[in-house]
Design a protein around this nucleic acid. Structure first.
Length: 498
RNA sequence: GCGGCCAUCGUCUAACGGUUAGGACGCCAGGUUUUCAUCCUGGUAAUCGGGGUUCGAUUCCCCGUGGCCGUACCA
């Protein structure tokens, strides 16, 4: 270990949305930097022009901010919410660093550690097919490796398309200590003469990673496991340049329920999708943090501060973890229950308003909204569930099978009779006293006086008011519906039973 | 095919080589509740297989099996 300042980075390609796997990678890199008083920065890896997606960077930055993982350096959101760059190691966008990569590629050519290659993709395809047919490892056959530099220069001058490849040494053991996996060993014979510079003048990931992370003084590379097999190439490059290599930590992948790499086909993978569904950023972060890591205690709920304090790379799992939405649901519900009402209301209103707007009903009073939200807060697991269960409050026509008005331990006539009695009783209640609390008092009293049981009265009442088998208590519902509408619905129910 | 990584309940995971293999989610049952949810109580369920090493392996080693990743002018 050395005493260099800790610097970690998240280095996404702007190819679309912010993947939850990316979130975990970014989170671990962030936590590691923060707990070591280090710097977490963001670099945009846009070296594949064919895959670029408009607006992807902005989108990513916004999502990152939403989950509380703002980079402090590199590409970030400025005070106007626009993407900009900050820091002493810029530019932090790879497409703006082309000259730098070209210079270093040239250095490798000059040192005889890289070479120009003029092979067409057609030839490459053929070579690969032959190798496959012969059940041989598929690798570049080094056709251009021994071309003289002069000859190569000549062909380039003539305008021939070319790439620059790395000269991988023969039979060299490349061993390194991964922070998560321990010792990992490769033989250079297994490694391809990797392309470093593409024919369009852009670098491949491999060159860009080594050059940038050296120049940007990254101390720890925290990245996905899919990079593990390329790490020897990167180590070789550091050696070629005479640079000290950073520490590596390769994270296992997040998996679909069928254990394949987490993908769009089997559910949501974008952080923004989860937010849109009403998962709280804190819960998402908490949940993802625990996928493949835990401090060894039985604590499940962690704030960002606690994560920063407790996190350790050494305790990160080597095994891929399945992204199980059921547990996320539970965790999200925990966060919702614990949240203070004001904040909950603020977050819930967009979901709530959507429902209200779609109902052809007068808007609810502030007081009514608070009542509803307060009730829902204890019941839902994600914000999008708000409204799903309150249609009956907003709509005038509630359609349901009159059969369900009858409690399981009762019969139709009895339900009818009790509703009629109840209706009469409720009509006498003053509107001033039409609150959940006093309704409960009056109705329980009424039940006792008539020698009835709770179920015999309250079940039909609740169903009459909601049309549903599952709902909050009839007192709360009546309170929210107010007197006139409540009585209307009860009378409607009575008619339907006749 | 070749290379690498990995392997504890269905899922996320805990266990200096010595535990009745623990917790959480889910599920099931019971209690509370007019119902659902909440809440409380209890239950279900795991060390991939085979060899070693050891007085003793979930733990260390080897082999096998399985899964995953890589094998692109994608990252």
């Amino acid at each position: 270990m050395n005493n260099k300042k800790i610097r970690t980075r998240y280095a996404p390609s702007p190819t679309g949305y912010f993947h939850v796997g990316g979130l975990r990678t970014a989170l671990y890199a962030y936590l590691f930097a923060k707990q070591n008083n280090g710097t977490f920065f963001l670099r945009v890896e846009d070296t594949d022009q064919t895959r670029e997606v408009q607006g992807a960077v902005d989108n990513l930055l916004k999502s990152l901010k939403m989950v509380g993982l703002d980079p402090e350096e590199g590409v970030l959101l400025d005070s106007d919410g626009k993407a900009s760059e900050k820091g002493d190691f810029g530019p932090y966008t790879q497409s703006q660093r082309l000259k730098i990569y070209q210079k270093y590629a040239q250095e490798l050519i000059d040192k005889g550690l890289a070479y120009y290659c003029f092979c067409t993709s057609e030839r490459l395809d053929e070579v690969r097919k032959t190798q496959e047919a012969n059940k041989q490892p598929t690798r570049y056959d080094r056709h251009c490796r021994d071309l003289s530099v002069d000859e190569a220069k000549e062909r380039i001058a003539k305008g021939e398309k070319h790439v620059i490849r790395m000269k991988i040494p023969d039979n060299e053991i490349i061993e390194f200590e991964d922070l998560i996996r321990g010792a990992v060993k490769f033989n250079s014979n297994e490694i391809d003469d990797q392309i470093l510079m593409k024919s369009d003048g852009f670098p491949t990931y491999h060159l860009a990673h080594v050059v940038d992370d050296h120049l940007m003084e990254t101390s720890h590379i925290i990245r996905g496991e899919e990079w593990l097999p390329s790490t020897p190439k990167h180590l070789l490059l550091f050696k070629f340049f005479g640079w000290e290599a950073p520490e590596y930590a390769h994270l296992s992948l997040l998996l679909n329920p069928d254990k394949t790499k987490l993908s769009k086909r089997q559910g949501d993978v974008a952080v923004e999708d989860y937010i849109a569904k009403g998962y709280l950023p804190e819960a998402i972060v908490n949940f993802v943090a625990l996928l493949g890591w835990n401090p060894g205690t039985e604590q499940e709920i962690f704030s960002m501060e606690e994560l920063i304090k407790e996190f350790s790379l050494e305790k990160v799992h080597k095994t891929g973890a399945i992204f199980d939405v059921k547990k996320l649901d539970w965790m999200n519900g925990e966060y919702i229950k614990k949240m203070d009402f004001g904040k909950f209301k603020e977050l819930a209103m967009p979901f709530f308003s959507a429902v209200i707007a779609s109902a052809a009903e007068k808007s609810l009073s502030d007081e009514q909204i608070d009542k509803i939200l307060n009730l829902e807060k204890q019941r839902i697991m994600k914000l999008s569930e708000i409204g799903e269960s309150i249609d009956f409050l907003l709509s005038n026509d509630i359609n349901y099978d009159p059969q369900i008005l009858v409690w399981k331990k009762s019969d139709k006539e009895f339900a009818l009779k009790n509703l009629q009695l109840l209706s009469k009783e409720l009509k006498n209640i003053d509107e001033k006293n039409w609150t959940a609390e006093s309704l409960e008092k009056v109705i329980i009293e009424f039940i006792k006086n008539n020698n009835l049981t709770n179920g015999e009265v309250l079940w039909p009442m609740r169903v009459a008011l909601t049309g549903q088998e599952k709902s909050p208590t009839p007192f709360e519902v009546a309170d929210m519906l107010e007197k006139e509408k409540s009585l209307e619905r009860i009378d409607q129910a009575i008619k339907s039973l006749k």
